[in-house]
C-alpha cells in the first residue's frame, strides 16, 4: 500500500468512475455504534450517509428521500431485514440493496437475493470491501 494512498483518494478514484456527486446511501442497522462509526468512515470516503436505526425508521426515511444505494442489516429487533427489503423493492425497485448478514445465515442471504437484493456481505466485514460493493452497485445502476 502506498503511503499517500489514503481512503479519501481511493474513494475519489471510485467516484470519478461513477458520479462526482457523493453517493446517497441509506444505512439501516439497529446497532447504533456500528451505524455511527460506519457513517463517519463512509462520509470520509465521500459517501453521503443517512442513518436509520430500525426497519420502520428506514421505511419512513425512504418515503421522504431518494437514495442511490441501501446497506441493510438483515437481523434487526423490530422487523426482519428481509421484510424491509421486500418493502424497499416495492417503494424503489431500482435502488440496489446490499445486505449485511450474520455468519451462517446464508439461507437468509439467498432469500434476499431472490427478492432482488444486489449483493450480501458477512458481518463483521472490511469497510473497503463494503465500499467496493457500494460503488459497484451504483455503477451498475448507472449503466442500466
Amino acid at each position: 500500500m502506498k503511503k499517500d494512498d489514503t481512503p479519501q483518494e481511493r474513494s475519489q478514484e471510485a467516484l470519478q468512475e461513477t458520479n462526482s456527486e457523493g453517493i446517497r446511501l441509506l444505512l439501516v442497522d439497529d446497532e447504533a455504534g456500528f451505524v455511527e462509526v460506519l457513517s463517519k468512515r463512509m462520509a470520509k470516503r465521500g459517501i453521503r450517509v443517512t442513518k436509520a436505526h430500525s426497519g420502520t425508521e428506514a421505511i419512513q426515511t425512504l418515503r421522504k428521500n431518494d437514495f442511490d444505494v441501501t446497506v441493510l442489516d438483515l437481523k434487526m429487533e423490530d422487523m426482519e431485514g428481509i421484510e424491509v427489503l421486500k418493502i424497499f423493492k416495492k417503494m424503489a425497485p431500482e435502488m440496489p440493496v446490499i445486505m449485511l448478514t450474520g455468519h451462517g445465515s446464508n439461507q437468509a442471504a439467498r432469500e434476499g437475493m431472490q427478492w432482488g437484493a444486489h449483493d450480501y456481505l458477512t458481518k463483521p466485514c472490511e469497510l473497503e470491501e463494503l465500499v467496493e460493493k457500494i460503488f459497484e452497485a451504483v455503477r451498475e445502476r448507472k449503466e442500466r
Partner: peptide, 20 residues
C-alpha cells in the same frame, strides 16, 4: 458468537475510523 459479532464489528470499525 452471534452477539459478539456486532461489538467486534464496531470495535474494528472504530479502529478503522481512528486510522482514517
Amino acid at each position: 458468537a452471534h452477539e459478539i459479532n456486532n461489538p467486534v464489528a464496531i470495535m474494528v470499525e472504530e479502529a478503522g475510523w481512528i486510522e482514517d
